[in-house]
């Protein structure tokens, strides 16, 4: 049995015209320490998959098993990095991470240990210099770094990232992708990332899960990315294997799953 098992998940929403089926038979098995990217056109239900794993949304049929235990409510063992960082604006950077640390380790760690752990996670994302600032005073990329620190600080079994860099400019995005790769190498997190960026998917992940268009979206193809780590963006730019993977994903997205209205 795999570490994280998304087992034949259907998600349907009631509407005036009967049930709207968003996901049908989504099945995915993820090993510990794997970096998985889910890619697909917007509206295909990528985020729905992530929300089911997070427990924020209940599967209509099927379910999610983490270490052989069913998950059906949100919890810090599946920390989420939200697309628009969702830091609490009335707390400082430090407090935004500390609130998570206090909640998860309130009983198992002493106050001093929790302080150190908060600082440690801010250091991981290179944000310790801004720990006393409020989210309104730092840039979008920095906010997303803090969002990642908050998620990492929960020491989750699975790190869920919902288009974490979608709202950032290309240079900041590249910078954060490097950080995530570094951290993932160091901590060996199991990561499930939603993205619509082909380069990001190929660069970061071990496997790319390509989803068909909705309604009733499902897993179309899974591409294993056998590129040695650490990966370097510049070297890979001219690497034929990298470009082959890239072309595979593009072909899936633009030939086989071309959006009808975009045609």
């Amino acid at each position: 049995m795999s570490y994280l098992n998304i087992s034949n998940v259907d998600v349907a929403f009631p509407t005036a015209n009967g049930a709207y089926i968003a996901l049908r038979e989504v099945h995915l098995e993820i090993e510990q320490g794997e970096f998985i990217a889910i890619i697909g056109h917007s509206g295909c239900g990528k985020s729905t998959v992530l929300n089911v794993v997070a427990g924020l949304l209940e599967a209509t049929r099927g379910g999610v098993l983490l270490e052989n235990k069913e998950v059906n409510s949100p919890g810090p063992d599946r920390a989420v990095v939200f697309q628009n960082h969702s830091l609490l604006p009335w707390l400082t950077v430090y407090e935004n991470v500390r609130i998570a640390v206090d909640k998860v380790f309130g009983k198992s760690k002493s106050k001093a240990e929790r302080h150190d752990w908060t600082l440690h996670n801010l250091q991981l994302v290179h944000m310790e210099h801004a720990m006393d600032k409020r989210p309104g005073e730092i840039s979008g990329g920095m906010k997303q770094r803090v969002g990642i620190a908050r998620a990492l600080a929960m020491q989750p079994k699975v790190l869920l990232m919902d288009e974490p860099f979608g709202a950032l400019d290309a240079l900041t995005r590249a910078h954060l992708q490097e950080s995530v790769m570094e951290i993932q190498t160091a901590l060996n997190n199991t990561v499930l990332m939603i993205t619509h960026d082909v380069d990001e998917a190929v660069l970061l992940s071990d496997r790319i899960v390509m989803m068909t268009n909705g309604p009733a979206a499902t897993v179309g193809e899974i591409l294993r990315v056998d590129l040695p780590r650490p990966r370097n963006r510049l070297e890979l730019a001219d690497d034929p294997t990298y470009n082959h993977y890239r072309a595979e994903v593009l072909r899936f997205l633009y030939e086989r799953q071309r959006r009808p209205e975009a045609a």
Partner: peptide
């Protein structure tokens, strides 16, 4: 999103009120 953060952190009703609803 703020409420989702609260759910992921499993904040209780009182904590949600004190740490999220009131400041927001």
């Amino acid at each position: 999103d703020y409420l989702n953060v609260a759910r992921v952190l499993r904040l209780g009703k009182l904590e949600v009120t004190r740490r999220i609803l009131i400041p927001a």
